[in-house]
Design a protein around this nucleic acid. Sequence first.
RNA 1: CGGGGUGUGGCGCAGCUUGGUAGCGCGCCUGGUUUGGGACCAGGAGGUCGCAGGUUCAAAUCCUGUCGCCCCGACCA
Length: 482
Amino acid sequence: MANDKEFVKEVTPQAVDFSQWYLDVVLKAELMDYAPVKGCMAIRPYGYAIWENIQQLLGGRIKATGHKNAYFPLFIPQSLLQKEAEHVEGFAPEVALVTRGGGEELAEKLVVRPTSEAIICSMYAKWIQSWRDLPLLINQWCNVVRWEKNTRPFLRTSEFLWQEGHTVHATEDEAEAETLQMLGVYQDFVENELAIPVVAGRKTEKEKFAGALRTYSIEALMSDGRALQAGTSHNLGQHFARVFEIQFQDKDDELKYAWQTSWGVSTRLIGALIMVHGDDRGLKMPPRVAPVQVVLVPILMKKKKEEVLNKARELAARFNGKLRLELDDREGYSPGWKFNEWEMKGVPLRLEIGPRDLENGGVTAVRRDTGEKSFVAEGDLMQQLPLILQDIQENLFEQARQFRQENTRHAEDFDNFRNIISEKRGFVLAHWCGDAACEEKIKEQTKATIRCLPLKELDGVEGPCICCYKGRGKKAYFARAY
RNA sequence: CGGGGUGUGGCGCAGCUUGGUAGCGCGCCUGGUUUGGGACCAGGAGGUCGCAGGUUCAAAUCCUGUCGCCCCGACCA
């Protein structure tokens, strides 16, 4: 269709240039706009609504597991950040520093938080004295700043929004259990609400969080075959407790250092949502997080204009508070224009109501995921719409799951490994001996990194390392990553 | 930090080679006709051409400098 071409011209097809497609979509769907500062963006209402839904759905899970929200300062005295050696080293290059305030040079420079371990630990040291104060389970929603050289909307920005949980426990076992519990919460949330299948696993020493004992992550596969870390959960051990002196007197009267965890997901999830589900026509929002779940477009002909409009308004009012339904009764835009715009924005379900539908006593429903059209009688709407949305949610997950399955391959020798990575991308499962030198060599030669060592034992059998063939180890997930 | 690109009404671009005081498409505003996959007609508003200096009677255009932003790589949620 001529019109189709015209429209599609505004969005670069994925096959032509995936990264340009991504940029076209985030801008045209009005998720964000570039701000005057490099790497910074304004998150527009439609994009922010996704974040609000994430906050609500993930926030609910965080609270349900006993955590409470709190807020800690944006500014961290430089000396605090520098306490934990590995932590400083990891973050120093990307830290923004405030040196002046109130027109004067500051006595101590202030770091703009790149993450809040330091400032939070300094407070926890004051709050914790006894085993009775534990566990301490706190989460905060905030912005953080990391001075990035290479930025991309949502995926890597100089400032981003996230949620960071910081907990303190009496024992190592409890801390480890908490770390894994929250990883599980992330997996459940991302799979069931964002419809993105993920692999849960442990990070290698090289890839772990600066200052952590162990880092776990959930890893997702984007539709261009590159992996994206979608959430991390760290067992901090006693590293921070020791330098910040978070001590408690235990039941046995002894003074002990506490065990800590931290875990976070960021606005990067929005990037994942776009890259996992989107197509050449734009976004495809999973209904559970879609800012608009259903759009109702009245077809306003000269005849029956008022009747159609009245019925549309009546239907919209009926779903008020039950579904996120938007009535698009703007005049001056043709129905076709609206269809395309809402498809670009990824609204899962579109309802059309025109003179014909009025006669037939219902609406025409069109799914964003399959393009399938159906007629729904007015009386069935209340019951049918949630079912269709649920079906769309499941279908999106299933599509993504299938894609991941088709793009997860096993490699038994290095040539095979290299070929898969360079020609097909996706996840590659291969044996790794555990030596950082092999990890590094693989990265240099293929640009693929170890995404994680899966928690779920895949075959569980050890084999010769894909790189050195000498050492033996279990299979790890490799991929080129964002 | 390297490589590339780009800066001209809100957006996308042309004009620059060969200096002569800014144009096109989209969008926007008004009115009318339209409306089942990005409608049409008529009228209209809107730009000291990233910034600074220089050359010239005259600079979007030539020269010098500078800044921003975007993309691709090395480092990272």
